[in-house]
Amino acid sequence: MKVMHRYAMSWNALVWSGAITDGRLKMSHDFDCPYCEAPFEVCHDDGHGYEEGVLHHDHCRSCGKHFTFTTSISFYFEPEKADCLNDGQHIWKTRRTYPVEFTRMKCQTCGEERHPTTEEMAAVVAARR
């Protein structure tokens, strides 16, 4: 399962969501002020505004009026083919570690990890010289 940051969406999802209308990505803000409709970005530096089920208080920096808001968190999932989980071949890549003895191989498709074979480990050691 791949959970993406809210701005790390596929091109199709961005178009579908309305964030892309004319081929350009619109800059986002959290919401519009309920009084003056100025774009409003919640300052999350201290964790403010993240907790669900809480009535948060804030004020607009444009009109100076106070308002409340609630937070709703959603997830976006983007499925990808994983042929290696369906009798296909894994695409193994070396994970760089220090010391080299802790090197692991990781499949670029499904994320599975394993110890390198003797031949793979010899190639890793030779490449680091």
Rank of each mutant, 00 (worst) to 15 (best):
M4E: 14
W16D: 12
C84H: 05
S72W: 07
T21Y: 11
E51M: 03
D87T: 10
A126L: 09
A82W: 01
C84K: 12
R6E: 13
H57Y: 04
A19Y: 05
C110Y: 03
S72Q: 15
A123D: 11
D32W: 00
G47I: 03
L14Q: 03
P79D: 14
C60W: 10
E52C: 08
L55Y: 02
D32M: 02
G53L: 11
M9G: 00
M4W: 11
T21P: 02
Q89T: 11
C84R: 05
E52M: 13
E52A: 13
M9V: 07
T97N: 00
A126G: 06
I20D: 10
A19H: 11
A38W: 04
F31Q: 00
T94Y: 02
K2S: 07
L55T: 09
R61M: 12
W92R: 12
A126D: 15
R96V: 11
G64M: 07
E119W: 00
A82N: 04
T109L: 15
A19D: 12
E113P: 08
F31S: 06
N12R: 04
H44W: 10
A13L: 11
K106A: 15
D46C: 15
E52F: 08
C107E: 01
H115I: 03
E112K: 15
Y76F: 10
V54Y: 12
C60M: 06
R61N: 09
E78N: 13
E52P: 00
D45M: 12
E78P: 05
S17I: 10
S62H: 13
E112C: 10
K65G: 02
T118I: 08
V124R: 00
A13G: 03
L25A: 12
G18R: 03
C63K: 06
D22L: 07
F40S: 02
D46I: 08
S72R: 14
A127S: 13
G111I: 12
V15I: 14
P39V: 03
P116T: 00
Y76N: 06
Y7I: 07
H57I: 00
F69Y: 13
P99N: 03
C107R: 05
C63P: 00
C43A: 13
P116G: 00
H29D: 05
R61V: 05
V54D: 04
A8E: 15
W92E: 11
R61E: 15
P34E: 02
P39R: 02
K26G: 07
A38C: 07
G53P: 02
E78W: 04
K2F: 08
R6T: 06
T70G: 14
D83S: 08
D30F: 02
R6S: 09
Y35W: 14
A127M: 10
E37V: 04
M9T: 01
R104T: 07
F102W: 13
V100T: 14
V15M: 04
H66K: 15
L14R: 06
W92V: 02
R24P: 00
M9F: 00
T68P: 01
Q89S: 14
S17D: 09
A82C: 14
R129F: 03
R128H: 02
C107M: 04
E37S: 11
S62G: 06
H48M: 03
H57L: 05
S62P: 04
A126Q: 15
I20S: 10
